[in-house]
Nucleic acid binder design. Sequence first.
DNA 1: ATGGCTTGAGTGTCAAGA
Length: 254
Amino acid sequence: MKLATWNVNSLKVRLPQVLDWLAANSPDALCLQETKTTDEGFPFAELAAAGYRAEHNGQKTYNGVAIVWRGELADVVRDIPGLADDQKRVIAGTLGDTRVISAYVPNGQEVGSGKYAYKLEWLAALAGWLRAELARWPRLALLGDFNIAPEDRDVHDPEAWRGKILCSTAERAAFDALLGLGLADAFRLFEQPDKSYSWWDYRELAFRRNRGLRIDHVLLSAALVPDCRACHIDKTPRRLERPSDHAPVVVELR
DNA sequence: ATGGCTTGAGTGTCAAGA
């Protein structure tokens, strides 16, 4: 089984690239973030023509997450149960016996800001909900844009980013708390190239200079880890014209 | 140098992203 996650930064703009990527990579499920559209604007028909079904949790202009899959998806949940939040950042479903969650963690804007407090509260709520999800579905994959670079090696210039948004101690502690639930960072299960990132700023030729951050992740429950054969970041779409600023992250499971 | 791009909104220019 192949699972992937991709923050597309507007599905309207990126749909041709998503369709091409699905055709080229043939994942069983693709988790999307930042669709930036309502359910009415979601391209269900175009995806169906490509052999994929979809569940979307969207809103106008901002946020929006989806799972695009082949086969059957059951027990779909939108949003974090019990969290008062009008931002559409979570959708989950079960593919076979594997729970698949597409998440778009808040950016946080600046350490100490209101958005930063919201990010940390949101991550705490996510962890609380995941504990229950893991109890129900031992085989669980949490995929998405976490907006956290877990370690200095995930940052092109760790000194410049020290303590800054996406890299602060509290954000990294929140990421570690997710690992503490029994989840593993699939990317780090394998030897990886140095300076591997999943996001590059649009400005200042950041991609060409590989000035990026690894903030998109796939976390696997302990039951899935032995089945994980590979995890990689696919930089191919980042090289296209009008790319998303994020690259897809792909895992292959037995 | 707090900029630089890109998107959605909507037609002038701002909010938000990371």
